[in-house]
Amino acid sequence: MISYNNICVAFNGPSLFDNLSLHIQKGEKLLITGKSGVGKSTLLKVLPGFVPLNSGTVALDSIVLKQKTLHSIRQKIAYVSQGVELFGDNVESFIKSVFSFKANEHLQYNKEKIKTLFDQFELPQVILQRSIDELSGGEKQRVALVVAVMLERPVFLLDEPTAALDVHLKQKVASYFLENPDWTVIVISHDHQWTKNTGITIIELGEN
């Protein structure tokens, strides 16, 4: 379903990846680990076209990432970056603005669903009215995860999504994403809660 084919990425220096290939099946769960600076986040950013490739290709559902296919590929991916930066005046306006994008017009701003997901990730409802600046790192991460789920996309790219959460929440979030058989999840994390689940493939970058 997701293919990285002989990709090379370099930023004004030695290559970060040299002919790296990776194939991930639909519904597969993949944990990427590795030392700092080996390119874990870059590997995720390549798929939605946020980092240019020096050579090679990436594809999702056999559609190769190009300028023409960019928007449709991005619409299949829910991406939560490390230290995610939400926008808008408060959480509710942030969520509403996400739903106002043309690409998300087919989705409803569903208050019930928000409530269910907020409960799932242990976020109090009052947070909806809270200013983005007042949220803690963990709250921002969970709001971003709620939005990612609400977008109903089949692929999740999660970059340290549980870094700012306590042990109990780390476990809850990891289980939530790993237990859904329909979702393809690529996660970068140093939290062992992700490895507790069987059925997750672990790849250590920087190791051949």
Binding site: K45, P48, F50, H71, R74, Q75, I77, A78, Y79, S81, G83, V84, E85, L86, F87, V98, F101, K102, A103, N104, V147, L151
Partner: peptide, 12 residues
């Protein structure tokens, strides 16, 4: 980072 996040959320 925020701009890229907005693109990833479906924004043109």
């Amino acid at each position: 980072k925020q701009y890229l996040y907005t693109l990833s959320l479906g924004a043109t």
